[in-house]
Write a protein that binds this DNA or RNA. Structure first.
Lengths: 232, 232
DNA sequence: ACACTGAATACTGTATACAATACGATTCGA
DNA sequence: TCGAATCGTATTGTATACAGTATTCAGTGT
């Protein structure tokens, strides 16, 4: 063992942050099998860091709900698929109330941005899933920011990477895409009319449809964890 | 300096959790001035713990939004009063959508529990602020649990201690108390009728009234985060 | 054969030591 | 006198050593 000077020089970003991102993605991509109990020393060794920044990352992953506290200490990774439908509920709560607030607070510039986004979404080709995902993410991002609630934004951001993956977009058919764009359009119109109630209703419907399509598309298939990290 | 065996024996609960609670309360009660930069070594010394569990606590406080990252590392305590109105927005989002789900999923037993709670709240004396706070917390807790969404429950629990302090109850007048109980009663009725729409509406109104009363009562820094400058 | 008890073990929680950076003060130069 | 650069200090980020508890497995008794 080296003394303890295995420092990473010239790192502007804390180590634990990178660890956090890596683990987060690993869990969401099922590279770490659900229900596995995380062994801190082995994980730290596998990631090439000490236990301290690892624990910092784990602490935050727990607050994100991606891992849960095990009895007798330590953590157990949760199954992100099980919680997917549930996560959409949280999303609907945030965005539904978010557009309600947005109807009161949105600026003319933001409405213009939304209109532009919808137009771009109309013109984009079906095959460009990555572009569609970006547009979709942007749309909802603008909405949440228009609510002018930092807390809502923060909570939403925690969820975003979880539920909005690029691959999800590949499931959409040409028709459902048009329908989604239409719903986006409806929401913007509701906001223009400052009708928070309508915006909320359409948003909930929109998300519900998106969720159903997603769950149906993914089915229950989803190959669990073939390539592993330390399965431990 | 003691060697390093200043251990707290027979502690079933991690040290950092107590630190977390203490700091949380200290910040919410303004015992630590907002905008203070937290010095880890001094804080650790003051609390009688080492930096490790302290940092664990700080990490979570940051995710709660009670402290923010400072430039060049470290943390700065945020002003809980500034974020209080905003926190109520998040709460309204969670509980509004929560009762909507509850209208679909609530069990007969839970409805009975709610009725009982409302009855107890009718009979309780005004002076018993602690009891009223407990009843109020229980009411909303049951509702969120009735939504059968673990994620909603978790997010709500993070918020609960923040916005529902015992002292807040002392602000209520006899009349506003009766009004609040009446609103609780309305919500339960809406749930009995499985009218999620109405439950949502009443809940949002209920929380909005509670928030206004709270901000007005606390007086200072009652600046509503609602009407901010139309930024960009 | 099963249950209960005990020690060994493995792993988490905590403390402390060390490295590196960011900030401030002081000094030198223009 | 003001500005810039450099050194010193203070504070965070990381690594590791240590203490304590939970789990597991072996052994014995009923």
């Amino acid at each position: 063992m080296l003394p303890h000077n295995t420092y990473r020089l010239a790192s502007r970003e804390p180590t634990w942050k990178g660890v956090y991102r890596n683990l987060r993605l690993a869990i969401l991509n099922l590279e770490i099998a659900p229900d596995t109990r995380l062994n801190e020393v082995k994980l730290a060794a596998a990631l090439g860091v000490s236990r301290t920044p690892l624990r910092e990352a784990l602490s935050r992953l727990e607050m994100d709900g991606l891992i849960g506290a095990a009895k007798g200490g330590g953590y157990i990774v949760t199954d992100p698929r099980e919680n997917l439908a549930d996560a959409y509920h949280l999303r609907a709560a945030l965005e539904g109330y978010g557009v309600r607030l947005a109807a009161e607070n949105i600026s003319a510039g933001q409405i213009a941005q939304l209109r532009e986004n919808v137009e771009a979404n109309r013109r984009i080709e079906l095959a460009d899933t990555r572009g569609r995902a970006a547009l979709n993410a942007e749309f909802h991002q603008i909405l949440i920011m228009a609510s002018r609630s930092p807390r809502l934004l923060q909570t939403y951001n925690n969820l975003r990477e979880w539920i909005m993956t690029d691959e999800d977009m590949s499931l959409h058919s040409d028709e459902s895409c048009r329908q989604f764009v239409h719903e986006h359009d409806l929401i913007v119109s509701a906001l223009e009319m400052r009708d928070g109630d309508m915006a909320d209703r359409v948003m909930r419907l929109h998300l519900r449809r998106a969720r159903d399509l997603l769950l149906e598309g993914k089915g229950r298939a989803a190959a669990p964890a073939d390539r592993e990290l330390p399965a431990a």
